[in-house]
Nucleic acid binder design. Structure first.
Length: 260
DNA sequence: ATGTCGGATCTCATCCGA
């Protein structure tokens, strides 16, 4: 059994105790983190090592920042998209060489938010997605067993939005973003979460504002895409809402996939 | 409800980004 997970922690400095609690309760083989918001010198590798996790990290001041935590060694680490000049730390990839399934390549991503359609940040998101897709073609060719997971900042369909009418053409829900999500699938991935029957309103993110979590007004924007050769290996894919119920939660919940 | 967080700087208040 191989368990992989993704979690946007919205500041690892704040969320480290919750992360350690979560790993103790959910001893996954690998976890990718987004929005660590830490420079590399501040990354809490010793605390994670004490909890049984090796780490690879790629951070910056104030914003973004990603990490790959693994119980066994990960190799061939890549930070950001090769050939795509980017000041923002959004991607970390590594290979788990010793799994029961053979080598599995894991790519953790913090997709750009995009702010609003038509904005400069939206244009950056589109350029970043194009670069990601070009790179993934190579990655898939080299690593047939590939898992792409993270905070995509895209709600793929109206079924992933609590109020599809209100959110129509809004950021995370635009036609352009959804076309990119489909483009990612067309490269040779499946949305692991949608391979299984799921509870109603399966959101992964709730705005801090407006009592959104209490009212269960959320979006499913955190995803795990597994390459098609892994489809027969999929056992489960779930969103763990428990950490969102903490007193000082991240606005995102972890997503977990089980392969065997 | 431009309603809450987290981080940084303009630090005991306000900004930016999400």
């Amino acid at each position: 059994m191989l368990k992989l997970a993704t979690w946007n922690v919205n500041s690892l400095a704040v969320r480290l105790p919750q992360l350690l609690d979560w790993l103790a309760a959910n001893p996954v083989d690998a976890l990718v983190l987004q929005e660590t918001k830490l420079t590399d010198d501040k990354f809490p590798h010793a605390e994670l090592a004490a909890a049984g996790y090796q780490a690879q990290w790629f951070g910056q001041k104030t914003y973004n920042g990603v990490a790959l935590l693994t119980r066994t060694e990960s190799t061939d680490i890549v930070r950001n998209i090769p050939g795509f000049a980017d000041e923002q730390a959004r991607v970390i990839a590594g290979t788990l060489g010793q799994t029961e399934l053979g080598p599995v390549r894991v790519i953790g991503c913090y997709f750009p938010n995009g702010q609003a359609p038509g904005s400069d940040k939206f244009a950056y998101k589109m350029g970043w997605l194009n670069a990601l897709e070009a790179w993934l073609r190579d990655e898939l060719a080299q690593h047939p067993q590939l898992v792409l997971m993270g905070d995509f900042n895209i709600a793929p369909t109206d079924a992933d939005v609590y109020d599809p009418v209100g959110w129509k053409d809004q950021i995370h829900c635009t036609v352009e973003e959804r076309a990119h999500f489909q483009q990612l699938l067309d490269l040779g991935f499946v949305d692991a979460f949608r391979q299984f029957e799921q509870p109603p309103k399966p959101w992964s993110w709730w705005d801090y504002r407006n009592l959104a979590f209490r009212k269960n007004q959320g979006l499913r924007i955190d995803h795990i895409l597994t390459s098609t050769v892994l489809t027969p290996r999929l056992q489960a894919c779930t969103i763990d809402k428990a950490p969102r119920k903490n007193e000082r939660p991240s606005d995102h919940a972890p997503v977990i996939v089980t392969l065997a």
